[in-house]
């Protein structure tokens, strides 16, 4: 009886020693040196693996941060300045300061203002339908409404508005990783600075057609009338291909352009309501549905 106990104890001890030896030898033999800084930096990063920085994941971004001399061109949009400062401290390198940005949808072509002229049948994916044709409406620049951006968003910061058929960004959740920008075949989504209280002014249209054609396709299209150019005190607006663009670096959020735009294609967000006698803000404006018969 005692023999068998003793035997098993010895046997197990022997087995254990052999296994430990094997493990020791193997771990020494196949040891790969890795800079401990990489793990440190990786812990600092948000760990969302969203690829917003351009690297496939946080781990490879950490490797890149440790491996490159000058990291001022590298930036984690999700963690923002706070995380980048911590990274800079840990690595003893300089990082660039960047204003926080947020995704904006530069199209207001809801079902109401932008009439459908055809019916698409096929897979519900913007990328596929863009390959087949120019979309259900007459605007070949606007949102296709199949929600590739919503699928691409890993932070649940976007959803499709059922009534307008357009995507909506939940700015609080948006980490500005840029996945939606890449996913959109029409390049409608832009990363714009997130000012204090998330105040933004931008042109909600990408239609490069001449005024009449653009207006016929969509009631809130930019018709390239240049009125906004004239009122802008900072020359922040430029006009190219019948389309206005507000340079976020120059714009001071004075809202003058919003007031003069005849088609209400300039969007302002999160501003307090205007004082008396001002035009009602765009968001609540009742825009008459475009009627192709009348226009023609």
């Amino acid at each position: 009886m005692t023999d068998s106990i003793l035997n098993s104890v010895i046997l197990m001890a022997l087995l254990g020693t052999v296994a430990a030896l094997v493990l020791y030898v193997v771990s020494r033999r196949f040891h790969v040196y890795e800079d401990p800084l990489i793990a440190t930096v990786e812990d600092l990063l948000p760990g969302a693996n969203c690829a917003g920085c351009g690297s496939p994941g946080c781990r490879s971004f950490a490797e890149k941060l440790v491996g490159t001399e000058d990291i001022s061109a590298l930036f984690c949009p999700v963690g923002g300045n706070a995380v980048m400062h911590l990274v800079a401290e840990a690595l003893g390198k300089e990082v660039a300061e960047k204003d926080p940005t947020v995704a904006v949808i530069r199209c207001q072509g809801s079902c109401e203002v932008r009439p459908k002229t055809s019916e698409y049948q096929g897979p519900r994916s913007c990328a596929i339908s863009a390959l087949i044709y120019s979309g259900e409406t007459d605007c070949q620049y606007g949102c296709l409404g199949d929600g590739d951006c919503v699928v691409a968003c890993k932070f649940d910061a976007m959803y499709m508005d059922e009534t307008t058929g357009l995507p909506v960004v939940i700015t609080d959740k948006c980490t500005s990783c840029g996945m939606c920008v890449t996913a959109c075949p029409r390049n409608i989504i832009e990363m714009r600075p997130k000012h204090k209280r998330d105040l933004k002014i931008f042109v909600g249209c990408l239609n490069e057609e001449k005024g009449g054609i653009a207006k016929k396709a969509c009631a809130v299209a930019c018709i390239g009338c240049s009125k906004c150019l004239d009122v802008c005190p900072k020359d922040a607006i430029n006009m190219e291909n019948n389309l206005a663009y507000i340079d976020p670096a120059l714009c001071t959020l004075c809202r003058k352009c919003v007031d003069v735009c005849p088609t209400h294609s300039i969007i302002e967000t999160n501003f307090p309501p205007r004082k008396i006698k001002e035009v009602t803000p765009v968001a609540t404006l009742n825009i008459e549905p475009a009627n192709p018969q009348n226009d023609a």
Binding site: G122, P123, S125, A127, I128, L131, I132
Partner: peptide, 12 residues
């Protein structure tokens, strides 16, 4: 099933 729609996209 829209087989060719997807295949055409996959090709691009």
């Amino acid at each position: 099933r829209p087989l060719l729609d997807y295949i055409r996209f996959g090709k691009t």
